[in-house]
């Protein structure tokens, strides 16, 4: 078991607290089936001692969308050597909630300091909607633990810019914190409204050959329907359930999809 990053510095009044879904991502990404997949796809960094480049693709970029407390991104970064077989990875977090961005940065930096010989290179946490400001085609591994709970409506974004800023005089209001927290879980119809927007962004943001995404779903999201949607993105899109937990009445409560495109990355 690899150590779980500490998030004790985060305020869970307005940032999602690591829960069963976060831990399922940690378990899945560090399971041998996934580390084998990642090492095969992104292993063999260039060797400094020989001065040669075995892998002209360079350091893979790992992006967690909606990183929240940063526990998943910090875990991937801190244990780069175990997950990827080398430390030469770049990690970047995004979140629509600026408080989450600050939490992610601290979580990632603390976890790196506690894994001095194995961590990758954490870049930054950037405040944005999903992948809005990520340069197209640059993401090698995308991780998303979405707001997946079915709700009557999505948080009202017209007030987001005000709610996204800390008020040093009065502190955060209850409405403000409720809004920020709702962004982390409220998924609208079938819990899929935000996830569907992310799925539509995958063909553009993922690297055209190497890109792979890990997406967490709950049973109410109708995972089989989501898989069909992903296969329908175009020729060559593949999707597979690579992690699951919490059986309820015979149904997997949570599952993690791996989404990628056909083709041998080694031949690229």
């Amino acid at each position: 078991m690899l150590p779980t990053p500490s998030t004790s510095h985060a305020s869970f009044d307005n940032v999602y607290e690591p829960a069963e879904d976060s831990f399922l991502l940690l378990d899945t990404l560090s399971a041998s089936s996934e580390t084998n997949f990642l090492r095969e796809r992104f292993g063999q960094p260039s060797s400094a001692t020989e001065g040669t480049v075995d892998s002209p693709q360079g350091a893979p970029l790992i992006v967690e969308v909606g990183a929240g407390s940063g526990v998943v991104l910090a875990f991937v970064n801190a244990h780069a050597d175990v997950l990827f077989g080398h430390r030469h990875i770049l990690t970047l977090g995004t979140d629509i909630n600026s408080f989450a961005c600050r939490a992610t940065r601290t979580t990632a930096e603390k976890a790196s300091a506690e894994a001095p010989d194995g961590h990758g290179n954490f870049l930054d946490a950037v405040n944005m909607d999903l992948t809005a400001a990520i340069r197209p085609g640059t993401v090698d591994v995308l991780v998303f633990n979405p707001p997946y709970v079915p709700t009557a409506e999505l948080p009202n974004l017209s007030q987001h810019l005000q709610y996204n800023t800390y008020n040093p005089v009065t502190g955060n209001s209850f409405e403000q914190d409720s809004h920020l927290l709702a962004l982390s879980y409220a998924g609208g119809v079938e819990g899929m409204e935000t996830t569907n927007r992310l799925i539509e962004q995958l063909p553009e943001v993922l690297h055209p050959e190497r890109g792979v995404a890990y997406l967490l779903l709950c049973a109410q999201n109708k995972p089989e329907k989501v898989k069909e949607h992903i296969r329908g993105l175009g020729a060559g899109w593949l999707v597979e359930t690579v992690g699951s937990s919490g059986k309820q009445g015979g149904w997997e409560k949570l599952q993690i999809l791996r989404i990628w495109r056909a083709g041998s990355p080694r031949a690229l």
């Binding site: 600026s98 600050r102 950037v126 909607d129 809005a132 400001a133 974004l157 987001h160 810019l161």
Partner: peptide, 18 residues
């Protein structure tokens, strides 16, 4: 223009620009 504050860049857009 996107602001950077305390090292965190803000790429959120007003709703009319999305």
């Amino acid at each position: 223009e996107y602001r950077v504050k305390e090292g965190i860049a803000n790429f959120l857009l007003p709703s009319h620009l999305v």
